[in-house]
Design a protein around this nucleic acid. Structure first.
Length: 341
DNA sequence: TTCCAGGAAG
DNA sequence: CTTCCTGGAA
């Protein structure tokens, strides 16, 4: 019978030598990390890769070094700085959370207290408690699910396996250095125990790993088959008026909520009229893949011949491509190419 | 070109 | 259980 007690010490020993160096990280065994920086990085890392987050984290901490600074920022500036990172509800929750924390004089120190804040769920609450306060909380992200599924050779497919994997993960969390341990688990998943070709030959946990023993490490965790994505259609209007272009804020709830956009139909079958009178010309199409559907938008360009029905005009030299979400950047690029031609 | 990884909210 | 995006790998 395997002794699970060897797992945490072996992993911590590996982490002391191989911890990833990241802008929001404190070295192994170092002083506790700043809760604000841990929180900001973890929220950005929700559903986002480390590589994509780095530049955004640098920029945010430069603009807003403390949670009080962020709390005082205007909504539109935060949305613009977040543009391109995706899942824009995170940005709205980020600001709501910052304001609540600033009003309360600082971050809660317990997982339960953190869990009550906007945008902080089971993963992020455990991560902040463990990393910033060295609390013995069990952090379970996609990396940890994979490592644990392999260590215990769990064949149940995700997402059904999740509660069991969490329970198994909890049995491994040490009382010593739980913060470093949490980061070590995630580093192991990100660099050694990878989804496709796990580097078992250099893994510090190769010895106790059941999946490795059974030769099924690369097949775990198993996943339920996924449904095909439907395709949706829509129309987007790039409306010119002299040296200005028509934009509008999307409603705060729903897809691309609160972001800056070109006026468009609703994409769910409901037809909306053009934002104003113009001789609309079709100039191309853009394709964009969301989590649950693929969207094809037909791009129309036109010069307004009357007052727009909605939105507001932005002068060409004031348009900031980087303040647009990915889909609207594609639309803008199509329009730019046409305007230049 | 398609496939896939990656948490929270309602 | 459904709704939320993007970029990097295959």
């Amino acid at each position: 019978m395997r002794d699970d007690k060897v797992i945490a010490p072996a992993l911590l020993d590996w982490y002391d030598r191989h911890a990833r160096v990241l802008p929001w990280r404190v070295p192994p065994g170092g002083p506790p990390a700043d809760p604000y920086r841990v929180w900001l990085s973890e929220v950005m890392l929700q559903q986002t890769t480390v590589a994509a987050v780095k530049a955004y984290f640098q920029r945010f901490t430069e603009l807003w070094p403390t949670v009080q600074d962020l709390a005082a920022a205007p909504d539109a500036q935060v949305m613009a700085e977040w543009a391109g990172l995706g899942y824009y509800a995170r940005a709205r929750n980020l600001l709501a959370c910052a304001r609540q924390v600033a009003a309360e004089g600082g971050f809660p120190t317990t997982r339960t207290g953190l869990r009550a804040l906007p945008g902080i769920g089971p993963y992020t609450s455990a991560a902040i408690a463990a990393i910033a306060h060295d609390a013995p909380e069990t952090v379970v992200d996609g990396n940890v699910e994979r490592v644990v599924a392999r260590l215990f050779a769990v064949n149940t497919p995700l997402p059904r396996a999740k509660p069991g994997l969490t329970a198994l993960a909890e049995t491994l969390t040490p009382q010593e250095r739980p913060g470093d341990y949490a980061q070590a688990m995630m580093d192991l998943g990100a660099t050694i125990c990878t989804p496709r070709n796990p580097a078992c030959a250099i893994c510090p946990l190769v010895d106790p790993c059941d999946a490795r023993a059974e030769g099924i490490a690369a097949e775990l965790p198993r996943k339920a088959p996924k449904q095909p994505k439907p395709t949706r259609q829509g129309t987007v209007w790039v409306a010119r008026s002299g040296d200005a272009i028509l934009f509008e804020e999307r409603p705060t709830k729903g897809l691309l909520g609160g972001t800056l956009a070109f006026p468009s139909t609703s994409w769910d079958g409901r037809d909306l009229p053009p934002p104003g009178p113009a001789d609309w010309q079709e100039i191309g199409q853009v394709r964009h893949v969301f989590t649950h559907f693929t969207l094809t938008l037909t791009v129309l360009l036109g010069d307004l011949t009357g007052n727009p029905q909605r939105g507001h005009l932005v002068r060409l030299d004031r348009i900031d491509r980087d303040a647009l979400p990915g889909l609207m950047r594609k639309v803008w690029d199509v329009a730019q190419a046409e305007i230049a031609a």
